[in-house]
Simulated scan of single mutants.
Amino acid sequence: MSFLVITVFAIAGNAILNYLHIGIPALQGAGGLLLLLVALQLLTGLGNAGNPQSVSDDVNVALVPLGTPLLAGPGAIAAVIVNVGQADGATSAYLAIGAAIVSIHIVLVLVLRFSTVLIKILGIGGITLMAKIAGLLLAAIAVQLIADSIKGFIAAG
């Protein structure tokens, strides 16, 4: 499902942005802020996005699988649309983006498939350490997206 969501936004994302009159800098800024929120949750351990009890009663879980917003969330969608928008019509850039989407989903399948083995190998301390490192790297990516957004607004204005 995640692969389908990301692929749809890679193909139709720019058309959606054009229809809504949203520029790439605005999407970069919004994606950066959302990624920063996720990074802060990883770094602080606060927030429990994967808690099924946090789903409101009026949302049908069968229509929105819990894995989709976690694997193909707003940050991933924004990153795909921004990268496709910056490809400038180069076929090699589109192929690279497509290869990246496929390869990251292969890695996701492998990690999810062997997650119990990874948990046994890493232990609770190792998983916590990896979450903190991932949070730090994600925060850096988020800040870079926000900085690029600001540069884009300055260049456009």
Rank of each mutant, 00 (worst) to 15 (best):
A100Q: 10
L108N: 03
L40V: 10
L42A: 05
R113P: 02
D58L: 09
K120S: 13
L42T: 01
I121T: 13
G152R: 06
R113Y: 10
G85A: 13
G123N: 06
L122G: 04
Q144S: 07
I133L: 15
A96F: 12
I124Y: 06
L35I: 06
N18V: 02
A72Q: 07
G126K: 10
I22F: 09
A12L: 15
A131F: 03
P52M: 03
N51T: 07
G31D: 08
V102P: 01
K132C: 13
I77D: 00
S149K: 00
G135C: 05
V61S: 08
I6Y: 02
V82L: 07
S149F: 01
V80I: 15
D58N: 10
P69F: 01
V80E: 04
S56P: 09
I16R: 07
L4P: 00
S2N: 12
T128M: 07
A39Y: 00
L108M: 15
G67R: 02
K120F: 02
K132L: 09
I127Q: 12
L122D: 08
A78P: 03
Y94I: 11
V5D: 00
L110A: 12
T7Q: 03
V82A: 06
K120D: 13
L138E: 08
K151G: 03
V5F: 00
A76T: 07
L122V: 08
F9P: 01
T91D: 12
T44R: 14
G157F: 13
L27S: 05
G23W: 01
